[in-house]
Design a protein around this nucleic acid. Sequence first.
DNA 1: AATTAATGTAAGTGTTCACTTGCATTCATT
DNA 2: AATGAATGCAAGTGAACACTTACATTAATT
Lengths: 195, 195
Amino acid sequence: MSANPTTGEKILLATINLMADKGYDSTTTKEIALAAGVNEVTIFRHFGTKEKLLEAAFNRFHYGNEMTKLFNEGFTGNLHEDLLTLSRTYHNIMNRNRKLISISLKGSSTLPESVLQEASNNPKHLKNLLAQYLTTMSSQGKVITSNPEIQALSFMWMNFGAFISSLNAKEAVSEETLNEFIDESVRLFTKALSP
Amino acid sequence: MSANPTTGEKILLATINLMADKGYDSTTTKEIALAAGVNEVTIFRHFGTKEKLLEAAFNRFHYGNEMTKLFNEGFTGNLHEDLLTLSRTYHNIMNRNRKLISISLKGSSTLPESVLQEASNNPKHLKNLLAQYLTTMSSQGKVITSNPEIQALSFMWMNFGAFISSLNAKEAVSEETLNEFIDESVRLFTKALSP
DNA sequence: AATTAATGTAAGTGTTCACTTGCATTCATT
DNA sequence: AATGAATGCAAGTGAACACTTACATTAATT
């Protein structure tokens, strides 16, 4: 389809950057062409329609199942360490995909929900993994026995809220602030969950 | 400007409902007219432009400074009780304004930021109030002395994350689930913050 | 019953948008 | 040097949009 791959990539990058700012509907193909340093027609020759263009962007930059792997392999059984690892990995992934998540949160009138879904409903999957982890830990007496589902939910929502806040903030949240938050919040939850 | 107030209100309500779904840019005045059961021209006679229409919607439905008042008057000095009150009041307010918040999160290419700002940057104000409260409590020995700023941030982000999640969820989050979450998360934080 | 304000109807304006077409140009491959 | 694919350029299409204008209709006020 494209002999010169850099042309297609330039278009995809410009698309993501612009749509993360203004949303799908309000980003015009003319703007994308200008930002990509490419003629508008080239966009349509590469991707056919504006809709397929965003689909391509999502397919290209989407993350795999890092998290599931983390839960299966990366955990030590030490609550504080594991929550820290989880929190850090989560924010890493979210930040790597922050623009795509931004686009999908803004939504669109015409775009099929399926395109936007995977990015935004992501805490649910994590919550389940974490709840399962807490249940196991609880059966080993390493965590208080009460309500793992809602405890996991609280932890994930806290991190999700932190991420969304940084997404909409005028000035970028510094890495230092993020680390400070991760450390302190993990400390809080460790204390709260310890028997 | 309008002798029959219900006409203006019907338009405002339709505007909020539609824009909460599709965002400002993608909602057309024609749709609004249809949903309000009103002729399109009537919209312009009432509000002049589409932009002023949304401004009117925000002015009409915006909430005052309930939260500041809550901190000044409504707190007992019992950590668990106070966090519970805070959490409940927060979700009450957010749910009452959920559509407007939805609109402002989706953003717009043309709309001035100032119109959308107040709704979305709201956790910051609350964080400051809560941090101050925690500092006071800590000086009374009722709360561990460590990092009130980030502890307050964690609490607010958790509730903010919960709200945003419910905003984008396909099926509405039931009131029961919300209450369960509030109870358990407040319990967690109370335990974590107690000396 | 007459007046007036609020609404409806119909038609249209200018603009912007996604997308198309035809042809000229560049550039790598042979 | 010749060929062919990728790109640029110029122009245009039809649809949708915010918004306007002129006039007819309704409903409340006097």
